[in-house]
Nucleic acid binder design. Structure first.
Lengths: 252, 252
DNA sequence: CGTTCTATTGAGGGAAGTCAACAGTGGTGG
DNA sequence: CCACCACTGTTGACTTCCCTCAATAGAACG
């Protein structure tokens, strides 16, 4: 699939539709979003931490990390955003972001002005609700990451991350849960799990040896899904993948 | 202030009004919320992880922790909720919660049916927007906690938590940032920071010795705010305390 | 006024970090 | 088109921060 604004918006619609009910009219309103496509190199900052923003970044292709930084410039990735995710959708209601966004690999994004997102949210209550719910879903992922980093061993922690990304790529129809592309370096994997790249390397080796996961050349392969889920203590419910019945706003 | 539904709702309005613009009509709509007051003992579960819910819990008095649990029953607190916080406001749009809520001390809550929250959100766009923004604010706290637990030493981690709670209690007008009540045990502090209670005890001792924080008998005292902020690497921007200008929905 | 939480302190162990050297890998420009 | 250089991954030796186990004292609560 050649990256284009349309393909990216289609992924975005799909992501929203996983959890929210959108009418055809809602969907086509989203498809009419205009933004500017930008391609950035690996490691480039998309949003500098602490800067006010007036647009959101829809990931078209590649991988984006949301991160927080310390005074000693160590950093922690708090969420990974795959194609179809709008990394800083929350900034629509809170433009002075306390977080940063960085490309983890060569990445294409579609920059969408907040003004436009606010307009379609205001005109389409179901979209506003979908945006809200989407923020809650990301929030739930952060929350799970706190558990991951706070209460799991390095081994389990990394296994859990591979499970999470497997399900998310599968949902986004960008791979099978047992085989998907995750273009991330071990250093970034370390920043995502609160470890060092040296230790990540050792853990990946053990995951390989125990035939649970091979992660090489940006591709993740999981020979035995159930086995991995078992060691990772993985329960996908935090991804909030159920279509949520309640409609806050009645149909327009 | 004797706990009553009114006082709790007033705190809730105040919390929302920190970040969002609400008209008098909006505020009085919130004040008309009816719920049932419940008092629960320390350690009681308010929401069991993974159970669908049809109401949200507004903390009236006490302290509530949001947590995730592992198979080995270790648990990680991912956020602390103080009076005026509606711990599971996100469940309004996502009732099948992937998280749990537990009282950390004797706590009074006001249980508010989702149906009612959805109704006032639908009737008052500014309230819907405030709810959305409130979820984003909590989300930002989770994200910071990932950084805290993932990339800071035990000492800094705990110092950071005391800073966060200081500002939050101050904002809620429930104490000074240098002296506030935080009715939490060392075991729960450990669950919040991804440490063991033994190590928390040692760190608290050092914080006391270095005259940065004394936390005893449920009261936190900070002799030198700037000194604590410096060692804690604390930057309050993640609390999203600015009144956010954008209005998604035009005035009703 | 006992029983059960909660906090403190010590001793020893282990998971992950640090430092360092080296081997692949891939992109870029000469 | 190849050579170079920067980035990425691997492995070893040593260190350290925090955990585990354990014993005890203090506080809170019924």
């Amino acid at each position: 699939m050649e990256p284009s604004p349309e393909s990216a918006l289609r992924l975005f619609v799909k992501r929203l539709a996983v959890r929210s009910t959108l009418s055809e009219e809602d969907e086509s309103a989203i498809m009419r979003i205009k933004g500017s496509m930008t391609s950035v190199a690996a490691h480039a900052d998309l949003i500098k931490q602490g800067t006010p923003v007036d647009h959101s970044c829809l990931v078209v292709e590649g991988l984006v990390g949301r991160f927080g930084q310390n005074a000693d410039s160590t950093r922690q990735i708090t969420c990974l955003h795959i194609p179809g995710d709008m990394g800083d959708l929350p900034s629509v209601v809170s433009p002075k972001a306390g977080w940063g966004l960085a490309a983890l690999t060569r990445t294409t994004i579609l920059r969408v002005p907040h003004e436009q997102l606010r307009r379609i949210a205001a005109e389409h209550p179901a979209i506003a609700e979908a945006f809200w719910r989407d923020c809650v879903a990301d929030s739930s992922i952060f929350s799970e990451w706190v558990v991951n980093v706070g209460r799991r061993s390095a081994f389990v922690r990394i296994a859990h991350l591979f499970c999470e990304m497997a399900i998310r790529y599968q949902q986004a129809e960008q791979g099978d849960r047992c085989s998907y592309d995750l273009p991330i370096t071990q250093a970034d994997l370390a920043d995502a799990t609160g470890l060092t790249s040296v230790h990540v390397s050792r853990v990946l080796k053990e995951l390989r040896t125990r035939a649970l996961v091979t992660a090489q050349g940006g591709r993740v392969t999981i020979p035995d899904w159930d086995a991995l889920v078992a060691v990772a203590d993985f329960d996908e419910s935090f991804l909030l993948l159920d279509k949520q019945a309640p409609r806050v706003f009645k149909a327009a």
